[in-house]
């Protein structure tokens, strides 16, 4: 069923939600028009060969509301998000661009704080912001500040990552607690006060990814950072690429107590909530112990855990083995869980 056939002649907010509708939008509008071999795998980055070097190239836009939130701000997010899209492709991030769409009336002080945060994050991550652009739109035509960053990095010849390489018996590892960013934004935005406020996990993951690659002996099949649409959408993408089943064990998925509590109250599922400082990797069974150990040595992977394994059937599906012992299908996010989360 295509977008047109559904009779919805306009873009809905849900098309930006990172779930099934986003997927359809990309496949039916963009993939068709731009069709080429770099875009086709729909990875978070394209890996290009230039003069015998392998370059990873990616871009992302940030429209998060509000622009300052517990644990981060739109500036830090815009640097981390693009670094992470490079890192999960096995690249060492080098240079970033930054473009700003600023709404008339934004305070200089606020823009200054965002830009300083970007500079600090870039320094922390060892990347440089080397080019950019600014546009200003009339009041009411934007929402304070939108940022687009692009990034390039280099990929070692030895790195070969693709979800199509995933096979039955492989192990699924997540680098830490899931859903922190989504709950941090939501509770902050809606003014929901919690005993212990949840902070966004927003962080650059390239050092963690590098540690993992080094420890893996080539055993990492694929990595991705589960942002919009959450862990469930990322694993559904993996399952769709390798046509295996991704089977998660509910009790092994790390979730902060406060996030679980907020989800119970608000009716959200942590599996569908955005993360901005977590990655999920599928690794060969041999590589799993050393990779997990390397992750836990890095502060960003302290709570890393094996959350499941890959099985042959049912192909293309994600399953959750629940606490009380039955298995259910975990679909991609349908509709929109929370708008403008990143």
């Amino acid at each position: 069923m295509t977008i047109e056939k559904k009779g919805a002649g306009e873009i809905l907010l849900a098309h930006g939600g990172g779930g099934l509708l986003s997927r359809r939008l990309i496949e039916e509008v963009f993939l068709n028009a731009f069709s080429n071999k770099y875009l086709a795998p729909l990875n978070d980055q394209a890996v290009l060969s230039v003069n015998r070097s392998r370059l990873a190239f990616t871009t992302d836009s940030y429209v998060v509301n509000p622009i300052f939130f517990p644990g981060g701000d739109i500036g830090r997010l815009s640097v981390c998000g693009t670094i992470n899209d490079l890192a999960v492709g096995g690249a060492r991030p080098l240079y970033l661009s930054a473009s700003f769409i600023i709404e008339e009336g934004l305070a200089f002080d606020e823009l200054g704080r965002v830009v300083k945060s970007m500079a600090d994050t870039a320094r922390e991550a060892g990347v440089e912001i080397v080019t950019g652009d600014t546009k200003v739109v009339e009041r009411g035509k934007g929402d304070r500040l939108f940022i687009t960053t692009a990034g390039i990095g280099v990929v070692d010849d030895s790195v070969d990552l693709s979800p199509s390489l995933i096979r039955p018996g492989d192990v699924i590892i997540v680098s830490g607690t899931i859903g922190d960013h989504g709950i941090a934004i939501l509770t902050h935005r809606e003014g929901i006060r919690m005993e212990a406020p949840v902070e966004s996990d927003c962080a650059p993951l390239h050092s963690l990814a590098a540690d993992m690659l080094k420890a893996s002996g080539g055993g990492i099949r694929a990595m991705r950072d589960p942002t919009r649409g959450g862990l469930s959408s990322t694993l559904n993408e993996f399952a769709g690429s390798c046509m295996c089943a991704m089977v998660m064990d509910e009790d092994k998925i790390p979730v902060l107590e406060t996030v679980r509590g907020a989800c119970e109250i608000l009716g959200f599922d942590p599996l569908y909530l955005a993360n901005e400082g977590k990655l999920v990797a599928v690794v060969s069974p041999d590589a799993a112990p050393p990779v997990l150990e390397a992750m836990r040595r890095n502060p960003l992977g302290r709570d890393a855990a094996i959350i499941g394994a890959v099985e042959a059937k049912p192909g293309g599906k994600v399953l959750l083995e629940t606490s009380i012992g039955n298995r259910r299908i975990i679909d991609m996010l349908s509709g929109e869980q929370l708008p403008r989360i990143c």
Binding site: K6, G19, L20, L21, G267, K317, L319, R328, D331, S334
Partner: peptide, 28 residues
């Protein structure tokens, strides 16, 4: 389906169809 609901029972998080769909059995 929840992505293309025809009726409200598939839309709402409390709907019977949504519950049956979300927790449908795994057919290998």
């Amino acid at each position: 389906t929840p992505a293309d609901p025809v009726g409200p029972c598939m839309v709402s998080s409390e709907g019977t169809c949504a519950a049956f769909y979300k927790y449908r059995k795994v057919v290998a």
